[in-house]
Amino acid sequence: MTSRTKCRGWKNRLLIGTTIFSLSWSLGPVARAQDADVVGRVNGQEITADDLATAEQMYSQQLGQMPEDAKRSVLVDALIELKIVADAARAANVAEQDAYKRQLAFFEAQTLRSLFLEQRVAAAVTDAAVRAAYAEQAAKIPPVLERRLRHILLRSESDALEVISALKAGRAFAELAEERSVDELSKQNGGDLGFIAEGQIMPEIDAVAAKLQPGEFTQTPVATAFGFHVVWLEATRNRPAPPFDAVAPQIRQALAASEERRIISELRAAAKVEKLIADVTPPEAEDGHEH
């Protein structure tokens, strides 16, 4: 496939959904900033960086992770073709047809709805509101005890007893883990298993860890299906809430959706609404699972 053919394919995909954009152009020239960059011309009519930015916003999902220079090129080509066809439609008096006027009225209402809700939601869902919601939800998280454990895994009980004797003689736990443990992964970190919630590790280790104080190790080997463990409790804590930056986007999205529903509900309650067909609940969408 040639690069020209690929480019044409992208333009065709973009132009499938250009009704709103072409209708907005058909309303006539829009006042533009004097310093707007011109990215193309069609019969002397300018296509500006503002047009390009609007198109990019509308088609961002279709463009995916395309490199920026390729994205600009594809969008400008699409806008050029859009302008050419829109001019041809005007010359053919499509703008005088009832079908055009119906679509224009629909898309005008759709655009007004979108911008109105976007602006109202943005005014309500501020950074402060997101932080307040985070603090409220974090305070409701039930405490979960976590223990930071280290272990040394040995193949035999006698090996484990030797390690316990060495610990009692003052050897550092991390050093012994690196030297003696057969757990190849944790031995590289001095036997560190990280913070583990109750019930999230082998029950034999969970049971003995619950009896230790921070800084203590098991005085007898702990037998599991993997061998014999010597376990050290380094610290305990209640599991912290997820960091704000990790959950802020989801919180903002949830607040925005809630605010949008509130605005629509408020407006609907104040309006005189007549639905002249029966209310029918749509079927649930398929989720790919059998229930």
Rank of each mutant, 00 (worst) to 15 (best):
A55K: 02
E178I: 03
V182S: 03
V125M: 09
W25S: 14
K275D: 12
T111I: 09
R268E: 15
V163C: 04
L161E: 11
A36G: 03
V94P: 00
R72G: 07
P143R: 15
M58P: 01
R102P: 04
S158I: 09
S181C: 14
I80S: 10
S22N: 14
T19W: 01
T236S: 13
D279P: 11
G227I: 01
E290V: 12
G199Q: 11
Q62V: 11
Q110G: 04
I164L: 04
A70Q: 15
S24G: 03
D77M: 06
K211Q: 05
L167G: 01
F217S: 04
E118W: 07
H151W: 10
R148D: 10
V42D: 09
N43P: 00
A95F: 02
A269H: 15
R239C: 12
F173V: 02
A105S: 09
D98V: 04
E259F: 01
V231D: 12
V247A: 07
R131E: 09
P282Q: 12
A270S: 15
S186D: 08
N189G: 08
L185P: 00
G199N: 13
E286N: 15
P29V: 11
R32W: 00
D127V: 08
H151P: 03
F226E: 04
Q65A: 11
S165H: 10
S165Y: 05
A128D: 09
G28P: 02
K101H: 09
D279C: 04
R237H: 14
I201D: 10
T2V: 02
L276C: 13
P243I: 12
L82A: 11
L193Y: 08
T48N: 06
A109K: 14
A138G: 08
E260H: 00
I201W: 07
L233S: 06
L75R: 10
H229D: 01
A209L: 01
L276H: 07
A53F: 01
V121M: 06
E175Y: 01
R8I: 12
I164E: 04
K83G: 00
